[in-house]
Simulated assay, not measured.
Amino acid sequence: MKHLANFFFEAGMLKRTPRTGFQFLGSGAESVAEHSFRATLIGYTLARLDGCVDVGKVLQMCLFHDIPEARTGDLNYVNKKYVQVDEKKAVDDLARTLPFGDDYRALLEEFAAAESDEARIAHDADQLEMILALKEYKDLGNRYADEWYPFSVRRLRTETARRLAETIWATDSSRWWFDDDTDWWVRGRR
């Protein structure tokens, strides 16, 4: 039980581990845990839309894909030009302590290889989460988001994800809650 308690504390580190790319975007902040939460929802959606993949495996990949960053930190694309991280060691060190360690290790190896349909969908969910964040910051006036968007789209592996990215980019991120023009917005009642 001690190893499981430690695992949960380790996963909690992701709430305090910042995604580092936003410093180059010039605005925005997000923890790895916040990113993983929305990426998991996106992964579920993409898997259901696909209809032929193991939805549970996609969810697990999305949920676990950034757990090693509790040990390694989040490296953005500039960092990765200069810093070598031994993510395999981080995965192996944690896996040795977990009763499901072999499953965890195999899952992250499959995700890293990105050869299965489930892994490709999980990678797309990871990128679409970034595209959503970019769109939110673009709508708030960050002019650099337009420069980052094409690179994120080029990382997408499925046609469904590419179509969704186009829709995301064309949708006002702040209008999801404002779906009608009734008197509700004047009087606070229907």
Rank of each mutant, 00 (worst) to 15 (best):
L156I: 02
L164A: 12
E159Q: 10
R155D: 00
W176F: 15
V153K: 00
A161P: 01
T167N: 09
D172K: 09
W184Q: 03
W169P: 13
W177D: 14
R154K: 02
T182D: 06
R154I: 00
E166N: 09
R175P: 07
W169D: 08
I168Y: 07
W169E: 10
R157P: 10
T182V: 07
W176K: 02
D180F: 07
D172E: 09
V153A: 00
D172I: 02
T167V: 14
I168N: 10
A165P: 05
T160P: 07
R163S: 10
W184D: 03
T167Y: 09
T171I: 05
R157T: 03
E159N: 04
W176N: 09
R162M: 12
W169L: 04
V153Q: 00
W177S: 06
R157W: 03
W177C: 11
D180Y: 04
R162G: 05
T171R: 11
R154E: 04
L164S: 03
T167G: 08
R155W: 00
T167S: 13
D180K: 12
T158F: 01
D180H: 12
S173A: 13
E159C: 06
L164I: 14
R154L: 05
A170Q: 14
F178V: 13
W176L: 14
R162L: 04
S174M: 13
T158W: 00
R157I: 06
S173T: 11
S173D: 07
L156T: 01
I168M: 10
D183I: 03
R154D: 10
A161F: 02
V153T: 01
A161Y: 01
A161T: 02
T158S: 10
R154S: 05
D172Q: 04
R155I: 00
D172T: 05
W177A: 08
A165G: 11
W184N: 02
I168E: 09
R175S: 15
T160Y: 00
R162N: 07
R175K: 07
S174K: 12
F178W: 06
F178G: 01
L164F: 10
T158C: 08
L156W: 01
R163K: 04
A170L: 15
D181V: 08
T171N: 13
D180C: 14
V153P: 10
T158A: 09
T158V: 05
E166C: 10
W176Y: 13
T171E: 15
R163M: 15
L164P: 02
E166Y: 04
L164M: 15
V153H: 00
S174W: 11
R155K: 11
D183T: 06
L156S: 03
R157S: 07
S174I: 07
A170P: 12
T182M: 07
W176H: 09
D179H: 05
R163Q: 12
W176V: 10
T167E: 15
V153W: 03
S173P: 14
S174C: 12
D180V: 09
W184M: 09
L156Y: 00
L156F: 02
R162E: 12
